[in-house]
Design a protein around this nucleic acid. Structure first.
Lengths: 112, 112
DNA sequence: CCTACATTTCTAGTATTCTAGAAATGATTG
DNA sequence: CAATCATTTCTAGAATACTAGAAATGTAGG
C-alpha cells in the first residue's frame, strides 16, 4: 500500500500531474527533460525534482538516448495503480448498485 | 484538473488511504467517525482533519444520523476519478500496444 | 434543561514539500 | 581534450501539511 500512497501522492501535485499527462500523450518514446521543460515552462531544478518523485513512485521510467534523458510512462506500474483503484473500489461500487452474495475482489487483507 | 490533484493528494497519505479503503468495504451506509477511529486507531482531531480533506476533495460524503456522522464513499465522484485515469491513460496504453491511426480519447485539451 | 457523548475547532509544535538559482556532473561532438 | 549542452545536486528560504491534546460545539435522551 505504501507504493500506492507514493503514487497517488506523486499525482497529487499540479505540475506533476501535468507532466504525467503530457507523457501519457507522448506515448512509449516519452519526452526528454528539455522538451518537458519548454512545454510546461517549469524551471530545470524544480522539474528535475518532480521527475525524480514520479520516477521513484514507479509511474515513470527514465532512459538515456544520446545526450538526452527520456522520461516515459511506466505502463505496467500505471496499470497496477488503475487496477488497485478499480478492483478495490469499482467491485464494491457495482455491488452497491446490484448487491451480490458471493465473494468480491476486495479481499486483499491490509487494515482491519 | 485541480479537483483531480486534490483527489490524488487526498489518497496520497497513508491514513487517508486506509480510511478510503475501509469505507469502500463499508458500502453505501459508510461508517461513523467513532467506528473509523476505533478501527484504524487514529486520534479524533487528526481523523477529523483527514475526513475533512477527503470530503473537500469530493471522494467522501458525510451524512448525519442520530448523533453520529457517517462518512461514505462518493461513488459518482470516485468513478470520475477512475475514468480520468483510465480514459487519459489506458486509451494511450492500449494504443501503444496495438497502434491505431484514428482519434483517441485523450483529446481533452488542458496543457500544451 | 442538563448530562452524556460524538465530532469539530483551536492551538501550536514538528516535519515535509515546494521552489528555484547557482554550482556541479555527465555525455557528446568537433 | 575542449567546448557545449542536458540534467542533476546543492542550498536555503517559504509554504504547506501532519499531529494531537485541550477546549468548544452540537445533538439526543432522560
Amino acid at each position: 500500500m505504501k507504493t500506492r500512497v507514493r503514487q497517488f501522492g506523486a499525482l497529487g501535485q499540479e505540475d506533476r500531474l501535468r507532466i504525467f499527462r503530457l507523457l501519457v500523450r507522448a506515448g512509449p518514446e516519452g519526452k526528454c527533460v528539455d522538451e518537458i521543460k519548454r512545454r510546461l515552462k517549469i524551471p530545470g531544478s524544480t522539474l528535475s525534482h518532480h521527475l525524480d518523485t514520479l520516477e521513484r513512485s514507479g509511474l515513470l521510467a527514465a532512459r538515456r538516448s544520446g545526450r538526452f534523458i527520456y522520461y516515459a510512462i511506466d505502463w505496467p506500474e500505471t496499470a497496477n495503480l488503475i487496477r488497485f483503484l478499480t478492483e478495490d473500489c469499482c467491485a464494491e461500487m457495482h455491488k452497491s448498485i446490484r448487491p451480490r452474495t458471493g465473494a468480491t475482489a476486495a479481499q486483499n487483507a491490509e487494515d482491519s
